Measured scan of single mutants.
Amino acid sequence: QTVVIGDTTYHLNNPEAAQQIAKELAKKYGLKVVISGNTIKLK
């Protein structure tokens, strides 16, 4: 699972954790979560 935040890319072996982290950050910073395949992007 790949999480992309701005110009930073994180690789996590746990998809659920990756999605949870993405949701928390999106909520905290008012970002939009875009999931395509096994890549999660925060914009």
Rank of each mutant, 00 (worst) to 15 (best):
Y10Q: 03
G37T: 02
K23E: 12
L31Q: 03
I21Y: 12
T39E: 09
T2M: 10
A18L: 11
D7R: 14
H11S: 06
L42N: 01
T9D: 04
Q20N: 07
K43Q: 13
A18T: 03
Y10M: 12
A18F: 13
T39W: 03
Q19K: 13
L31N: 03
G6F: 13
I21Q: 01
I35M: 06
K28N: 02
I40C: 00
V4F: 03
A22I: 12
S36F: 10
T9H: 08
H11D: 09
L31A: 04
T2E: 06
T39K: 07
A26G: 03
Y10L: 14
T39S: 07
K43P: 02
N38V: 07
V34E: 11
V34T: 09
A17M: 13
V34G: 01
V4T: 10
N14V: 09
Y29E: 05
E16R: 10
Q19L: 15
G37Y: 02
L12Y: 15
L31F: 09
K43F: 13
Q20H: 09
K43S: 13
K43H: 09
G37S: 03
A22C: 05
Y29I: 07
V33D: 00
Q19T: 08
K32W: 09
S36V: 13
V3P: 01
I5T: 01
N13F: 10
I35H: 04
Y29Q: 03
L31D: 04
T9A: 08
A17L: 13
Q19E: 10
V4W: 05
L42I: 12
G30C: 14
T9Q: 08
T8F: 15
A22N: 01
K28D: 03
K43T: 14
I40P: 00
Q1A: 14
T39N: 04
I21E: 01
T8V: 13
K28M: 07
H11K: 06
A18H: 02
G6N: 06
A17N: 06
K41T: 14
S36C: 14
N14K: 03
A17W: 12
Q20W: 12
P15I: 13
G6P: 03
Q1P: 11
L12A: 10
Y29R: 06
N13E: 11
N13R: 06
A26N: 03
G37H: 04
I5A: 01
D7S: 13
L42W: 02
L25T: 00
V3H: 02
V3Y: 03
L31Y: 08
E24H: 14
Q1T: 15
I35D: 01
I21T: 04
P15Q: 07
E16W: 10
T9K: 11
I21A: 05
V4E: 05
D7G: 11
A26H: 04
K27V: 07
T9M: 10
N14Q: 05
V4P: 01
P15G: 07
K23G: 06
P15A: 13
A17K: 11
V3C: 11
A26L: 10
E16F: 09
K41A: 10
K43A: 12
N38C: 08
